[in-house]
Design a protein around this nucleic acid. Structure first.
Lengths: 214, 214
DNA sequence: TTAGTTCTAGTCAATTTGACTATAACTACT
DNA sequence: AGTAGTTATAGTCAAATTGACTAGAACTAA
């Protein structure tokens, strides 16, 4: 499952979006579902996740991590299925390249209908984990491009945590993390003082090899 | 994989121990390995983990949670294997009941030899996660019995985090968490002032249904 | 030139943390 | 009976962090 930031239709502020695919066969034919597919004998779990993502949506995420293995008995009405779910964060530029069609569409993460299988529960869990990781680790930057302003980082936090944060205090905290690097560039074009651009210099977090944050 | 506290041979202070089983067939015949076994069609992942644990060691843990799904291509030399690993914490009384035999034995978590498959890496990851959970959540209590002293809780933290903690400050923090309940009982028998006994009233944390701590 | 906007640095009190001191309450030994 | 040894427990105090807020800086639009 993939998270990306897109501007909300009304406010224009960034919000969380998820691409879903329409099922073209039973069970749940015609309903929306998370992209996915089988694991072959010659690929690792992560490779399989990447490949399935690429095939269904064309996306190549910058952040990909195992979410959870779901293996309840009645997840599918026809057969026993164990799904090892991965979750990804993609940057806006990547997300814009995603193939969208009759059977692939982006939805707001907080406004989903009933999905196939137990996919609503999976998304709920992924959202919970995203919020959790956000509170501690430095994961928000994978939803942004290479250069960003501190206000953009704050908007990511506000979108995911769904509450407003004090700009001055937030800036103080972010500037205290060593992985954030100040650049000499400024973002022009706003109708106000141009903000400085920053960069994230930390490494991703590919469980369980790269263990940076809880 | 199972964690339990046992007194160290020399210092007598509690340390982390893990039960391992000896492999009785190839590959890695004769080497020590994590207990485990196949998933059947009629049981959930968690049920399968419980059952395998019961069959190999006789243990019925009070805390059981999914760790990670390992699916690298070359984990086993003979065939492709995907292992959905669970980890458990057992209380000392439970751990004492574990069947120990020629082919099942407890080892200190920090003094393991080379194990079969990628099991050393799995244990490293589990240890990392245990330390992480300990730092935030309230998980240490599942390694203790129903009643415990604050010094015992501190010893658990010291054993897992492998560093000493200030008794007074630690006690202040633990007493501030609402899930810790003071009882009217005291632990007698020490050669010093008898410490008060406490209880843990929080719920376990069975991912992803019960989401209490990161 | 002025109003409107966000960026950015800073102040200050409240809270939390880390290091430490002192007393309480028991056992073991003389 | 008295005293030394041990851990339990409460408390103090400075340092560090956090939350709420103020004010000037730097741009655009009118």
């Amino acid at each position: 499952m993939i998270f990306a930031l897109r501007p909300s239709e009304r406010s224009g502020r960034p919000t969380l979006w998820i691409p879903l695919v329409r099922r073209i066969r039973e069970p749940f034919k015609g309903m929306w579902a998370l992209p996915g597919g089988p694991l072959t004998h010659s690929e690792s779990l992560q490779d399989a996740a990447s490949r399935n993502l690429q095939e269904t949506t064309g996306l190549a995420p910058s952040y990909l991590e195992q979410l959870y293995a779901f293996g309840g008995l009645h997840r599918s009405p026809t057969q026993r299925v164990v799904s090892i779910v991965y979750w990804a964060l993609v940057q806006p530029t990547e997300a814009a390249l995603a193939d969208e069609s009759e059977n692939v569409r982006w939805f707001r993460a907080d406004r989903l209908g009933g999905l196939a299988f137990d996919h609503n529960a999976i998304i709920d869990y992924a959202l919970w984990r995203l919020r959790n990781k956000m509170a501690y680790g430095s994961i928000a930057y994978h939803l942004l491009g290479e250069y960003f302003t501190l206000a953009q980082v704050r908007e990511v936090y506000e979108a995911v945590l769904d509450r407003e944060l004090d700009p001055a205090n937030f800036r103080r905290q972010v500037k205290a993390t060593p992985e954030i690097e100040e650049t000499d560039q400024y973002l022009q074009g706003g109708k106000h003082r141009p903000p400085r651009l920053y960069r994230f210099t930390g490494r991703p977090g590919l469980d369980p090899d790269n263990r940076s944050t809880p």
